[in-house]
Design a protein around this nucleic acid. Structure first.
Length: 426
RNA sequence: GGAGAGAUGGCUGAGCGGUCGAAAGCGGCAGUCUUGAAAACUGUUGUACCUCCGGGUACCGCGGGUUCGAAUCCUGCUCUCUCCGCCA
């Protein structure tokens, strides 16, 4: 959520910044409502002051045995007026809230306007593998090596699901262990959160109300409206870790990571070219998360990107890191970098990590603050999240990159202590 | 699933419908004393919003209601705890 004071103070500046991300912005109504709201507050509070004053007077009069009828009548009227104004106030406050809830975060100054076409590659690591034989794609490899069972996955979960088995399951789990080991060594705290979250969590993350349709909802009793949803990413859980809390400045930054499956509807986005594990309704991901002071969030973002890149590099996969243009960043984020893996069979890069700084956008929604020692004031924290990493694109990249002419796949060295095998043979 | 109890400031915990933003204790901060520390003593100690910067308003789990006036009465909801049952 944006600070309405920013909009009130300099609507043109905020409008220009938001136009990097959205088609059009019109603050006319908002500013009208805001002005009206303050008028009402002023009137109603004056009346309440009067009511408090007379309410204190009435018992005194009674104590002196005097008649308070005049005061009682006046207060009856004042109270009615207050009731009406309060009702008006709540209507207008709801309008303002709904408007602000729907606004995305302001892109950072150095983020370019426009969509994907304006994404800028900032780094590349390794190079595209070259094969002296005809390479297989990951679906062929995973199937022939018995690592992934697409058909039986669909039998259980329907379209958009797969299952890992045998060495495939071991390899998948080894990846997660490799990530966990690294994050623990870097001083991040391990969290295993609930996968079913209450709707408030989606609001804090910025998922709701605008993107309610992207997630799976759980029906309440007697088919009432949903009370819980399946998390689309552990970020949605972790941002709520410190919801409604005031942290100490010296506790910051707070660094966490969580493992969860991620559940997404991905309605309409499934394409034939994304067969295999590229896009499904459920995938495994470890998510890094930081709560920082405002002045430290830029450095924290660099740290998170560096960690994600190092994990990919350790697996020997060619990747590139891109800074996303405004429209390609999700609504809650001021700045995002994607780390994309090279998938040889697709002749394309596919996202394996998204690293973002939400600045105070999520903190406002979740009311997450810290007390600054120098001023004694509470300020909103900055929140950052980064995949570290999602496996669903890594698994295909590993199979395709490390395949041999005989159809076997060499296990990256960093995973071997977790797999207890070096190579997967047909 | 059944029965009961409860929700008050950073924590513990009082609170007759009328100066209750809220007693008291603990904790925190500042000071006195001390070579220093502890102890003791003194003072101080929530948040948000509006403002003609004098001040004002709101907040005692959340939302409604009664009343001139609600932490206090009524009501719906949420959450927590205890006991019984069931269970990975």
């Amino acid at each position: 959520m944006l600070d309405i004071n920013l909009i009130r103070k300099d609507p043109e500046r905020i409008k220009t910044a938001l136009l990097k991300k959205v088609e059009n912005i019109d603050f006319t109504n908002l500013l009208d409502w805001d002005r009206k709201k303050r008028e009402i507050i002023h009137e109603v509070e004056t009346l309440k002051a009067r009511r408090n004053e007379v309410s204190a007077l009435i018992p005194k009069l009674k104590k002196e045995g005097l008649d308070a009828l005049k005061e009682l009548t006046e207060m009856k009227n004042v109270s009615d007026r207050i009731k009406n104004l309060d009702a008006e106030l709540s209507v207008i406050s709801d309008k303002i809230q709904a408007y602000l809830d729907a606004l995305p975060n302001i892109p950072a100054d150095d983020v370019l306007p426009g969509g994907k076409e304006n994404n800028k590659v900032v780094r590349e690591c390794g190079k595209k593998p070259e094969f002296s034989f005809t390479p297989k794609d990951h679906v062929q490899l995973a199937t022939s090596l018995g690592l992934i069972d697409y058909d039986r996955g669909v039998k259980m979960g329907g379209n958009g699901f797969w299952l890992y088995k045998g060495k495939g399951a071991i390899l998948e789990w080894a990846l997660l262990n490799y990530f966990i080991e690294t994050h623990l060594a870097d001083g991040y705290e391990f969290v295993l959160p609930p996968h079913l979250l209450i709707n408030q969590c989606g609001y804090t993350a910025g998922q709701f109300p605008k993107f309610v349709d992207d997630v799976f909802h759980i029906e309440g009793d007697n088919k009432s409206e949903s009370t819980h949803f399946l998390l689309p990413t552990a970020e949605t859980a972790l941002i709520n870790f410190h919801r409604d809390e005031i942290l100490k400045e010296e506790e910051l930054p707070k660094k966490y990571f969580a493992y969860t499956p991620c559940y997404r509807k991905e309605a309409g986005s499934y394409r034939a070219s994304e067969r295999g594990m590229i896009r499904g309704h459920q995938f495994n991901k470890i998510e890094m998360f930081q709560f920082t002071t405002p002045e430290n969030s830029d450095n924290a973002l660099d740290e998170l990107i560096g960690k994600a890149e190092k994990l990919v590099e350790g697996l020997g996969i060619h990747f590139r890191t891109s800074k996303l243009a405004a429209q390609d960043c999700s609504a809650s984020m001021a700045k995002t970098f994607d780390i994309e893996l090279w998938i040889p069979s697709m002749n394309e890069y596919k996202e394996a990590s998204s690293c973002s700084n939400a600045i105070d956008f999520q903190a406002r929604r979740g009311n997450i603050r810290f007390k600054r020692n120098s001023t004694g004031k509470n300020e909103f924290i900055h929140s950052l999240n980064a995949s570290g990493l999602a496996t669903s694109r890594l698994f295909p990249a590993i199979l395709e990159t490390h395949q041999q002419s005989d159809g076997s796949v060499v296990v990256p060295a960093v995973l071997r202590k977790f797999t207890n095998f070096d190579i997967i043979k047909p």
